[in-house]
């Protein structure tokens, strides 16, 4: 399982043919309590860098950009009722959407865990 990170604090984790996208623990901490998540639609095609979702805290709204191009194959519906899952566990229960990637090699341009740790240091 490979996890990669963007400079905008999204993570993307390859899981077989699909990739799970969410925001990093660092990002959720910066945003504070998440109160609302605007999810993409299943079947929606996104290009790398497109705005795919929005997470809102009380005082801020942040766009979530697609870390890679692909098709949305699943969204985390639980976030509609429990947006706080992103705060509790951003990398597991707080995932946002899943992509079927057009080209898995796009991930190579993103940061690995060490590089991301240095980015947020």
């Amino acid at each position: 399982m490979t996890t990669r990170y963007t400079v905008d604090h999204e993570y993307i984790r390859l899981d077989g043919a699909e990739a799970v996208v969410g925001i990093t623990p660092y990002a959720q901490e910066q945003l504070g309590d998440i109160v609302y998540v605007e999810l993409p639609s299943v079947g929606q095609a996104v290009k790398k860098g497109d705005e795919a979702a929005v997470v809102e805290s009380v005082k801020a709204a942040s766009e979530i950009y697609a870390p890679a191009s692909g098709t949305v194959v699943a969204v985390n519906d639980r976030l509609s009722g429990e947006p706080g899952l992103i705060n509790l566990d951003p990398e597991a229960g707080g995932w946002i959407f899943k992509l079927r990637l057009d080209d898995a090699s796009e991930l190579e341009a993103l940061m690995d865990a060490d590089a991301y740790a240095a980015h947020t240091a």
Binding site: Y36, S57, A60
Partner: peptide
């Protein structure tokens, strides 16, 4: 509440 809909946070959105 729900002020993220408003101009002072969303600006052009």
């Amino acid at each position: 509440t729900l002020s993220t809909r408003e101009q002072h946070i969303r600006r052009e959105k």
